[in-house]
Design a protein around this nucleic acid. Structure first.
Length: 591
RNA sequence: GGUCCAGUAGCUCAGUUGGAUAGAGCAACUGCCUUCUAAGCAGUAGGUCUCAGGUUCGAUUCCUGACUGGACUACCA
């Protein structure tokens, strides 16, 4: 509709003031709360054409639009704002249209879009920081898929390197009799404990060496670290004993991760392991050397000089010929472009790696310009505790599994007080409680702008009332309760709503919100911003709750109005469900 | 030092190509459950949109400069 109004405004300006329509950029806004009208045109930008006062200009345009568009019931002018009031029929037709399209707004683009997220280390259990990453990655995948693209979700697991050897060494030295079966511990937690144990013992050794008079730097080369490095060398030369330990401990960790992912409802299309990709990129380095983009130092290490681009010199190959993170990432990127020809690769990675991705892009620009513009770093803010950063090696983290468990506890307590789920079979009850708990958690994380850092205070629990996931889920359950009762009462509500049906302002507001769904989703997908979906669905739920409070639905006597109300309810529930699904949040029918 | 991000109510956050009276939730206080689910609804109170300039009919929004907080600036990943 806004489009149609825009076209007519263009005509109006052309006819009334002889404006060349090509230099016009017309914006139609929703009329602000507190003013009469549905759509608003700000006429200030057109005064230079009309050479008349704002009021006069607005009136002339208003009169023109009114004469050309039967959907406009009336208009009013306040200062430079032209407010248009649409007819009842317009809004009812709009609702009929929305019901008939069944959310099929987006055509298939045929584009492959790859999104990399999660990317955990195998020596640390998942914590709240990973949850933010996973939820952002999952929700953005859904948004991109919804808007007609083929999404390839990938996870690159960091399963090698010196830090992994630390956990392995701790197990081998001190905990060799432990495994997930005999401890009853999740495998990722167990391995995480080994890592913490290593750091603790290593710290002790450092202190001992300092006490013996070594400098801090010298002291860091502890016997334990020497053993660890020896282990890494053995790993790299495929030592059978070390490989066996490595594979065993990895399998423990993956089983643990899988449980957390499944709890969060997260899946991947492809999992990459760094142990299989870390040698990639060497050929690219050769190519860069040939082209003179990289250079070799006297000690044989390979670098790129980006000081002219406002960055620094960056290492690409160590003096011993081994690769670094950047080399690997170059290799995996090129491999992915060659394998999937993605239109875009999105990396969901924290803002602490902005520099890395800037450099990656620069290098690609020089070597593979056609790929460089197709990578995008979706940088998000860290999740911190009130006392600062979460530190896995010190055990100062908000553990993902524990947090989910706590949320389920809270949801259970609230439901026991006032929920409707208590009479349900135990299995169904716990399924719904989990949906609510995860709804609260996911919404809490996703509603804030990804760029902003989140300070999470474990002492203050995540809310279940107000602007929260459960509030929206509750609204959905309320609507379903009405629809169930309508069914019991044998009320039929199908087909088109009669355009003559009487409609109230609240209903118009709701239809107007429903009709924004398409543009909200399109924009959210374009900006990779799940938060705007969260805001939208919250406003919709809030508006519905007011309507629910002010009007009865099932007791409505006028059959036409009853049909309108039920159809509207159904469409609202569907839109809430769709929107929440884009956030990866399920909606219950009872709660 | 340099680069990037953020700064809006006591707290957590919306507010996107500059538009009318800056909005929610939480916390506080007051009402509303014999009537479709009170995880709800209505109301009271709470603001120098960090500060100072600039651009213009108009700036929370754009520009410049400060201030505050965070991230990065590794032969770790």
């Amino acid at each position: 509709m806004e489009k149609s109004i825009k076209v007519h405004v263009k005509d109006a300006l052309q006819k009334l003031y002889n404006v060349d329509p090509d230099d016009l950029n017309i914006e139609i806004e929703k009329t602000r709360e507190g003013f009469e009208g549905d759509f608003t045109l700000v006429v200030f930008p057109f005064l230079k054409y009309s050479k008349k006062a704002p009021e006069q200009t607005a009136k002339e345009i208003g009169a023109y639009l009114r004469s050309k568009m039967p959907e406009i019931a009336s208009y009013n002018v306040i200062k430079g704002f032209l407010n248009l009031v649409m007819t009842q029929e317009y809004w009812i037709d709009k609702l009929n249209y929305l019901i008939s399209t069944d959310f099929s707004f987006f055509k298939n683009t045929g584009k492959n879009i790859m999104i990399e997220f999660s990317s955990p280390n195998t020596n640390k259990p998942l914590h709240l920081g990973h949850i933010r990453n996973n939820l952002l990655g999952d929700s953005i995948s859904r948004l991109i898929a919804e808007t007609g693209n083929n999404v390839i979700k990938v996870n690159l697991i960091n399963d090698r390197g010196i830090h992994i050897c630390k956990s392995m060494l701790a197990w081998q030295k001190w905990k060799k009799d432990l495994n997930p079966e005999n401890t009853g511990k999740k495998g990722d937690k167990l391995v995480g404990d080994f890592y913490v144990l290593f750091e603790k013992e290593n710290k002790k050794q450092i202190q001992e060496l300092i006490d013996q008079g070594l400098t801090k730097e010298e002291a860091e080369n502890t016997p334990l670290m020497q053993e660890t490095r020896e282990m890494l060398r053995k790993w790299e030369s495929n030592d059978p004993e070390i490989m066996k330990i490595w594979k065993m401990m990895n399998s423990w960790v993956y089983a643990g991760f899988e449980k957390t992912y499944s709890n969060l409802g997260i899946t991947f299309d492809k999992i990459y392991y760094e142990s299989q990709t870390y040698l990639l990129g060497k050929e690219i380095v050769e190519k860069g050397l040939e082209k003179g983009i990289f250079y070799r130092e006297a000690d044989n290490s390979v670098w790129i000089d980006l000081t002219n681009e406002g960055l620094d010199k960056k290492l690409l190959l160590r003096s011993d010929g081994t690769t670094v993170y950047m080399t690997q990432d170059l290799g995996t990127a090129v491999q992915r472009f060659q394998e999937f020809n993605p239109y875009l690769i999105i990396y969901v990675v924290g803002n602490e790696q902005e520099y890395h991705f800037k450099v990656l892009k620069k290098i690609l620009e020089k070597l593979y310009p056609e790929y460089a513009e197709r990578i995008f770093h979706l940088s998000y803010g860290m999740v911190e505790l009130p006392e600062g950063k979460m530190k896995s090696r010190e055990g100062k983290v908000v553990d993902a599994d524990d947090l989910i468990e706590e949320m389920i506890q809270t949801a259970t307590e609230i439901a026991n007080e006032n929920g409707k789920v208590n009479n349900l079979p135990e299995e169904e009850k716990s399924r719904i409680l989990k949906i609510i708990a995860l709804g609260a958690l996911k919404y809490y994380i996703l509603k804030v702008d990804p760029k902003k850092q989140i300070v999470f205070n474990p002492a203050e629990s995540i809310d279940f009332a107000g602007n929260t996931g459960p509030f929206i889920q509750y609204t959905h359950a309320r609507i379903y309760s009405i629809l169930r009762k309508a069914d019991e009462m044998k009320i039929k509500f199908k087909g088109k709503i009669n355009s003559e049906t009487e409609i109230v302002t609240k209903e118009i507001n709701l239809i107007s919100l429903l009709s924004e769904y398409e543009s909200v989703v399109a924009k959210a997908a374009k900006n990779f911003d799940p938060g705007s979906i969260a805001n939208y669905v919250y406003n919709l739920a809030k508006e519905f709750n007011q309507y629910y409070h002010d009007y009865t639905i099932l007791k409505e006597q006028d059959p036409k109005v009853l049909q309108l109300r039920l159809m509207l309810c159904k469409q609202i529930a569907a839109t809430i469900g769709k929107s929440m699904n884009l956030l990866g949040i399920e909606v219950p029918e009872i709660m």
